[in-house]
C-alpha cells in the first residue's frame, strides 16, 4: 500500500469522524421547555406576539430589548434581547433566537427575523404603487 493511500484513508476517516461529531452541534429548533433543561446555548424559534408589550428604551439601556414570543408548543414567554432593536422588527412574524433561559426569561444574544415572503411584499408594493 502506498503512503498516500494511507494518508487518504486517514483524511477520509477524520472527515467522517468530524462530520459525525457534528451531531453535538446541531439541533432542531428548541422550545422554552427544552431550553430551560439545557444549560448551553440553543436556537429557539417562535411566533412574535404583537399584542404583548415590546420594550426598547435606549435612554435606559440601548442594549436591552424585550418582547414576547410563543414557541412551537404554544408556550408564551418573555424574551430579552441584548441588542438594539432590529429594524423592521414589528413587521416580522417568526423570530429565531440564539440564547438560553435565565429563570423565566429567555435571554438572547442574536436574532434572525423571518419576514413575510418577498413575493407578498412585491404584491403589496405593486398595489401601493398602483394606488398612489
Amino acid at each position: 500500500m502506498k503512503k498516500l493511500h494511507i494518508v487518504g484513508i486517514l483524511v477520509i476517516a477524520a472527515a467522517i469522524g468530524l462530520l459525525m461529531s457534528l451531531s453535538g452541534e446541531v439541533a432542531t429548533y428548541s422550545n422554552f421547555e427544552d431550553a430551560s433543561q439545557k444549560s448551553g446555548v440553543v436556537k429557539l424559534a417562535g411566533l412574535l406576539l404583537k399584542d404583548k408589550p415590546m420594550v426598547y428604551d435606549p435612554a435606559v439601556d440601548p442594549n436591552y430589548f424585550s418582547f414576547y414570543i410563543q414557541d412551537a408548543k404554544g408556550v408564551s414567554k418573555k424574551v430579552v434581547l441584548l441588542m438594539s432593536k432590529p429594524q423592521e422588527f414589528e413587521n416580522s412574524e417568526t423570530v429565531v433566537l440564539t440564547g438560553s433561559m435565565k429563570g423565566e426569561e429567555f435571554v438572547a444574544t442574536d436574532v434572525l427575523l423571518k419576514c413575510p415572503s418577498k413575493y407578498k411584499d412585491e404584491e403589496i408594493a405593486l398595489r401601493n404603487t398602483i394606488e398612489s
Binding site: P58, D61, P62, N63, L82, M83, K102, E105
Partner: peptide, 20 residues
C-alpha cells in the same frame, strides 16, 4: 457605568455593543 439589574450572570461580551 450602565447598570444592568435584570441580567447579572451574562459575560461582558454579550452586551454593551451599543451606546446611546
Amino acid at each position: 457605568l450602565m447598570q444592568r439589574d435584570s441580567i447579572e450572570d451574562f459575560n461582558d461580551e454579550d452586551y454593551g455593543k451599543n451606546i446611546l
